[in-house]
């Protein structure tokens, strides 16, 4: 079946390894440009908010970090599920590679949110629906990584952690819709909704650039970590030789 060839190719470690290596610099360069414009636009070009003044500029790191915390977890869970169902080594490698990066973005979302909440809301932390579910996401990432490191055998680590990853995915929609499902202190979505963004273009364009840049940065980091994970999983393969000896 011709439509499935791409899927089979994705299951081939050497193909994925080489593709990841080729894509990394492209992702990195575009990410740097987009984040550079996003931060410059957010800090310098965008006007201050009518209510929050310059404190609103934290949105350019906070919102994209939060977006990445969800995107990385979704990537992780989908890859883990594919790994479980098709017994695909490369898929487990993607899941393992996404975890530390996703955890770092989740940590940043919580930290920058706290730094924004103190001056605007008047508190560093509160147990509202959005903040609590995002904290649980951080626990999920940390639990996933701890669970992996508890096994000496990589195949067992892959399968056991994949089950945790797939179960944990219910938290993703909970986080996103927490501000509409429950009364919360956190405001609703500005950009990530079907309706028009609640922001004029001068503020919006740098924010969209940040979203794009963070996503591509995640892709670049994922490619590098994925290569490491593939190398660790390949024992006797002959293609390893050509890669290792190139160095």
């Amino acid at each position: 079946m011709a439509t499935w060839t791409w899927f089979h190719r994705l299951a081939s470690p050497p193909y994925v390894y080489r593709t990841a290596a080729t894509l990394t610099p492209w992702f990195a360069v575009v990410a740097a440009l987009a984040i550079g414009y996003g931060f410059f636009g957010g800090l310098v070009l965008a006007p201050p908010d009518y209510q929050q003044k310059d404190a609103f500029r934290i949105i350019y790191v906070h919102a994209p970090s939060a977006w990445l915390s969800l995107l990385a977890y979704t990537t992780l869970a989908v890859a883990a599920a594919v790994g479980l169902v098709w017994r695909m080594k490369v898929a487990h490698a993607v899941a393992a590679a996404a975890a530390p990066i996703g955890a770092s973005f989740t940590f940043l979302a919580l930290l920058t949110g706290s730094l924004w909440g103190k001056p605007m809301w008047g508190t560093w932390w509160t147990w509202d629906a959005r903040l609590t579910s995002e904290l649980i996401l951080l626990f999920l990432y940390l639990g996933y990584m701890a669970l992996r490191s508890a096994f000496d055998d990589r195949q067992r680590a892959d399968r056991a952690s994949a089950v945790l990853a797939v179960v944990g995915v219910v938290n993703v929609p909970i986080i996103h819709f927490s501000v509409t499902w429950w009364n919360s202190l956190h405001q609703g979505s500005t950009v990530m909704k079907l309706a028009k963004p609640s922001m004029p273009g001068s503020m919006l364009w740098p924010l969209l650039a940040s979203f794009l840049g963070f996503t591509l940065l995640f892709a670049a980091l994922l490619c590098v970590r994925l290569r490491a994970e593939i190398l660790e999983r390949e024992r006797q393969a002959s293609w390893l030789k050509s890669i290792v000896e190139k160095r």
């Binding site: 006007p47 201050p48 908010d49 209510q51 809301w121 202190l185 609703g188 500005t190 922001m199 004029p200």
Partner: peptide, 13 residues
């Protein structure tokens, strides 16, 4: 404790 709630709308002054 009194916390301020703001909405998701941002605009220049």
């Amino acid at each position: 404790e009194v916390l301020a709630k703001h909405d998701e709308k941002y605009m220049p002054p």
